[in-house]
Amino acid sequence: MALEKIPVGVSQCLLGETVRYDGGHKRSRYITDQLSQYFEYYPVCPEVAIGLGTPRKPIRLVATDKGTRVQQNDDPSIDVTEPLADYGRKMAGELSHLCGYIFMQNSPSCGVYDMKRYGANGYPKDKDGRGLYAQQIIDKLPLLPVEEAGRLNDAGLRENFITRVYAYYDWRVNVEPSPSAKGLIDFYSRYKYQVMAHHPESYKTIGRLLANLKSRPIDDICNDFIGEFMYALGHKATRKGNTNALMHLRGYLKNQLDTSEKAELGDLIENYRLGYVPLVVPMTLLKHHLLKVDDPYLQRQSFWSPHPEKLGLRNV
């Protein structure tokens, strides 16, 4: 039986649709050929949706004394700021079920990071902009994992985004529909070491938050938890963080391994810390040994497989 795919928004041009201002597309084969095995896409081109047509005159972000505007390059009197913002707010409501969003970089409607803004004189002013449609989606759906297609070429950013998508999907399926203390604890028990690897400060904060589940309504605690949890996973897991989690998990084996096995595992963890081998190397041996413990708590840790192993995200 095929696994259910995760709902993810995507800039329409990334699927090969000819909706760009020049009548072309920006198809990403990684998105269409690999991630499509796991994600169900909800494609949007906000510029076409507000009636700009294809092909069309290009637009850009313009810094004014009234804030950032979106105007046609060669005619500032053609301003589409309000239509784009209105459409973004509308789609944030219609796409509230999404568990991730992949935007097209360098787009005045969809770019997320370091977007170039122009001054009224037509010259570049700074890179403090964000696409207006993307801004509305991010503002209205603050927990939603988002990324730009171009940044998915970076192995660390790619793995972090997909990890967040899977974790958020898990939450929305298993906790959000019916919040309970048991559901919350069961959920976090699977992600404890993953949070440790991503952001130790959040690991401590969440521990304090969950220390007394009777102190406040469970809905309030769940809201605080998922905000801190997604914030934690928003930090890339570092070698230091992963090594810390590996060392903690190794502690469960202190009475299970002989001297040579302990040395072998310790050497692999150290080689990973130093950057000589990828994470999958010590992880594979650690998982092998933990089977001897027969502990459901350990076996259910998302740290082992936070995303499909076929994607090979930990092989670099």
Rank of each mutant, 00 (worst) to 15 (best):
H289L: 07
T64A: 14
R158V: 03
H289W: 13
A245I: 01
S11C: 09
D139W: 01
L253W: 04
Y118V: 04
K116R: 13
D219V: 05
A263T: 11
Q34Y: 06
S178A: 15
N212P: 06
E17H: 13
R239M: 04
P179A: 03
L98S: 07
D139L: 13
E4D: 12
R314H: 06
G51V: 12
K240W: 04
G266S: 06
I78G: 00
L141T: 08
K287F: 01
I78Y: 14
G266H: 00
N121K: 09
Q12V: 00
L253V: 06
C13I: 01
D128R: 15
G111H: 10
V80M: 07
G100K: 00
I31W: 04
E82S: 10
I138M: 15
V48S: 10
T243S: 08
M283A: 13
V316I: 10
G100E: 03
Y169T: 13
R158W: 05
D128A: 07
F187M: 01
S107F: 13
K66M: 10
P58Q: 05
R151K: 11
L285D: 01
P308K: 01
Y188M: 10
M230Y: 09
I6Y: 07
V80G: 07
P58N: 03
L274M: 12
E270I: 02
E159V: 00
N244F: 07
A49H: 00
V62I: 14
L298P: 10
V62G: 07
L184N: 12
R29F: 06
F303D: 08
T205S: 13
K125Y: 14
Q256S: 11
H25M: 08
P296L: 08
L265Q: 00
K240H: 10
V293S: 02
V8S: 08
S302R: 15
N73I: 05
Y133F: 15
G131M: 04
V10N: 09
I78T: 11
A211K: 13
Y191S: 03
Y101G: 06
A2W: 03
T18E: 14
R69L: 14
L246K: 12
Q12H: 14
M104F: 04
Y252I: 01
P43G: 11
V70P: 12
L144D: 02
Q72I: 10
V195K: 09
P179G: 06
G312V: 10
Y42P: 00
Q135K: 14
L298S: 13
V112K: 10
C110A: 06
V44R: 01
L141K: 03
H248R: 14
G266C: 04
A85Q: 13
E4I: 05
L144Q: 03
